[in-house]
Amino acid sequence: MSGMQVFIFGAGYSAKAFAAQRPDKTIRVAGTTRDEAKFPTLQAAGIAPLTFDGSGFSTNIISALADATHLITSVAPDDAGDPVLAAGRETILGAMPNLSWIGYLSTVGVYGDHQGAWIDETAECRPTSLRSRRRVEAETDWLTLGEKMGMPVAVLRLSGIYGPGRNAFVNLRDGTAKRLIKKDQVFNRIHVADIAGVLWHLAERNLGGVFNVTDNLPAPPQDVVAYAAEVMGVEPPPETPFETAELSPMARSFYGENKRVSNGLVRNAGYSFRYPDYRAAFDAMWAGGNWAGDSGSARSPIRAS
């Protein structure tokens, strides 16, 4: 790993967890954000911050890319396609002499609805939302670029992300937790530490391919809230029928997709999940007192809905 340098487009929640897990402090990590106000939090996480608004690569970005050995991107596609490729495909192709691996963070939303069935990476992608259709196109673009470069590209299809500061404990504390009931509905989820762990596992070994990065236990969302309330020692919010719940169009669209996603391929690649299910993760976060993350004190008053 000596000399490893990582560049991240879209250095947000997962990227900060990734930087915090680096196994060797000599590994340099740079990452982009749209907002310079986020520079201090990236620097605190060990990420050298740069701005990228999708319109082009600055000289600072081009310079950092020239030294990078590993490239990670989590920037969501827009109407024009993948913003990173649109802004700098030729730079990636011709001005990154040290590059040996690319990681692209996608979503299990690319699979669409499979009516609760178990699926793996061989399942048909039949996305229902525009944002997921764009993700399929972006995945293809990055994999095609990798083939052209003779470069391994790992596409990580992520389930719903949670971790410190983003979890049912926080929602219960803030009074925003809901127990929505939709018959037979299940979701997978993934702790941010395991996203970081999988990224390091694949990057260190220069492994390419498509990988589901998700937990072992797809479960009804109301069960997750109920378990968090039990751990906290508070009353869970009342059950609410999905049909009558007040939800944003995006939130409601998530319930239109029902599937159980297997993580067997990434486990076969040698990765052991730190948090194989939400119960293990909630138990650890509560015991460790880090569940609130940067969202406030773990000792804040609890307001159950």
Rank of each mutant, 00 (worst) to 15 (best):
A138C: 07
Y271F: 07
I190Y: 11
N290M: 08
I195T: 11
A123I: 14
P218Q: 00
T91V: 15
F7C: 00
A284T: 13
W118R: 09
E36N: 13
G94P: 05
R89G: 10
L71C: 02
P49C: 01
T32H: 06
P164N: 03
R28P: 07
F211W: 06
G103L: 12
S100D: 09
M250A: 13
N206F: 05
G208H: 02
T107Y: 08
G81V: 12
P236Y: 04
P83V: 09
N60Y: 09
Y111E: 02
A76F: 09
L85A: 13
A138W: 13
S248G: 05
A64Q: 13
V266Q: 03
F273K: 01
M151V: 04
R303W: 15
F282D: 02
V192L: 08
T244G: 07
P49N: 07
F282S: 03
Q115K: 15
E124C: 10
G256P: 11
K183E: 15
L42T: 00
K182T: 09
S100G: 10
D174H: 10
T244E: 13
I62C: 15
R267D: 06
P249E: 00
A229W: 01
T51Q: 14
N258V: 13
P127L: 13
E239V: 10
R299W: 06
P77E: 02
G81E: 11
A269M: 10
W286N: 15
I119N: 10
N216Y: 05
A19G: 11
A48W: 09
N60V: 11
I72C: 12
A11W: 05
P237K: 07
G94N: 14
R22L: 11
F187T: 01
G81L: 14
P218C: 01
A19K: 08
A45L: 07
S63H: 14
R89Q: 10
M96P: 06
G208M: 02
A117S: 13
D294W: 07
S297R: 02
A45Q: 03
D174S: 08
V29P: 06
V213Q: 00
A292P: 01
T91S: 14
P83L: 05
T140I: 12
R267S: 07
A229N: 01
P164G: 00
L42D: 00
L180N: 03
T41S: 15
G209N: 03
I92H: 09
A226D: 12
P152I: 03
G165H: 01
K178H: 12
R267W: 05
E239A: 14
R166E: 04
F187I: 03
W142H: 13
I8G: 00
V266D: 02
V108C: 14
T59C: 14
A226C: 03
T107W: 10
L65T: 04
D67T: 14
K38M: 05
G160Y: 06
G103R: 10
K16F: 07
V6G: 00
A66E: 10
N263Y: 06
E246Y: 11
F187D: 01
G163T: 01
V198I: 08
K38T: 09
D141A: 15
G31D: 04
A86H: 07
V266L: 03
L172E: 02
P276M: 00
N258Q: 03
V224Q: 01
G150D: 08
W200Y: 10
G264N: 07
P40R: 12
Q43I: 11
R303G: 06
T69P: 07
V198C: 06
T91F: 09
